[in-house]
């Protein structure tokens, strides 16, 4: 089965370790992630101002291309993309006047009124594959791996676009269980990592990430699972700084959910691109016998 798929810019460069294991895993599960033709960057953040239609053009144009592709569902991997595309889609469904203005301006030859359903890959795994069916496909159960599921903001807020219960999300925990891993609940799993503040106040990122990382560690996590390249960057940068500042602070591997999926499906470490991770998972995966002793990958250097 083929699914329309929107990668977004970061997944083609710095976050190939989010995309490539996803494409390979979905293939192993019988789905082809079919990239939207001529997609453009969605703009990353949804415009919050009522009169700002120009910034809706980028996400809406992507949605129109999905319709032209003949699909009625669009799969995203990056939590930011999901948020921006899903909110723009909601606008096209709900606001007739803005919809007309945008359709007239974009001029793609067809009109669009929000008919595409925007989903996150986790929802495909939950609703179309199913946790039970997924766990049956697991070849290398991630047994003994204690992982903190970190949601961040954009999968869950605002309420209208949440992929799960806003206050008590379980989707990542259930995903981990299906792979044989042990999810570690921690109270700060939906707290913001600082987001784009890293551009204007890079010095504050360690403080944004401190409560998140400390809470996961305190609850016994050995690694953290993520869905967003910005979370990955901020948490990676934050924990490097905290390791210098806070005595006894331990850095932990940060992994994308798609890397764990590919690993559990037995697709091997190459497709996971662990060398792009912030905080190498190599020794942890070896300790848990999820990686053979001879395999090794060079983590990216110079990350602060």
């Amino acid at each position: 089965m083929s699914l329309a798929y929107y990668p977004g810019c970061t997944l083609k460069t710095r976050a190939r370790n989010l995309e490539e294991p996803a494409v390979a895993s979905m293939e192993a599960l019988g789905f082809k992630l079919d990239e939207v033709p001529r997609w453009n960057c969605c703009g990353a953040v949804y415009s919050l101002a009522d009169d700002d239609l120009i910034h809706q053009v980028a996400p809406v144009r992507n949605l129109i291309r999905v319709k032209k592709q003949g699909k009625n569902e669009l799969v995203t991997l990056c939590a930011f993309c999901l948020n921006t595309l899903k909110r723009a889609n909601l606008l096209m469904r709900q606001d007739v006047a803005k919809r007309d203005t945008l359709n007239a301006f974009i001029d793609e030859g067809i009109d669009y009124s929000g008919e595409v359903k925007v989903v996150h890959l986790l929802e495909v795994l939950r609703d179309e594959v199913g946790w039970a069916a997924l766990s049956q496909k697991v070849k290398l159960p991630l047994r003994g791996l204690k992982i903190a599921p970190y949601y961040g903001c954009t999968l869950l807020r605002p309420r209208e676009i949440a992929i799960d219960n806003v206050e008590n999300p379980t989707i990542l925990g259930e995903f981990l269980k299906a792979l044989g891993a042990s999810p570690v609940d921690f109270p700060e799993s939906t707290r913001c990592c600082g987001s784009y503040q890293v551009v204007s106040s890079p010095g504050d990122i360690a403080e944004y990430t401190r409560p998140i990382l400390n809470s996961a560690l305190k609850n016994g996590a050995e690694a953290m699972v993520l869905t967003c390249p910005l979370c990955d960057y901020n948490l990676g940068r934050g924990q490097k700084e905290l390791a210098k500042k806070q005595s006894g602070f331990r850095e932990m591997p940060l992994l994308y959910f798609t890397q764990l999926l590919a690993l559990a499906l037995g697709l091997g470490p190459q497709v996971c691109h662990f060398e792009l991770n912030h905080g190498s998972p190599e020794s942890l995966l070896k300790e848990k016998h999820l990686l053979s002793q001879v395999e090794s990958f060079q983590p990216i250097g110079g990350q602060k």
Partner: peptide, 10 residues
């Protein structure tokens, strides 16, 4: 060093 997602959103 900053990934695109940071630059674009920032």
């Amino acid at each position: 060093d900053l990934p695109q997602i940071a630059m674009v959103s920032g």
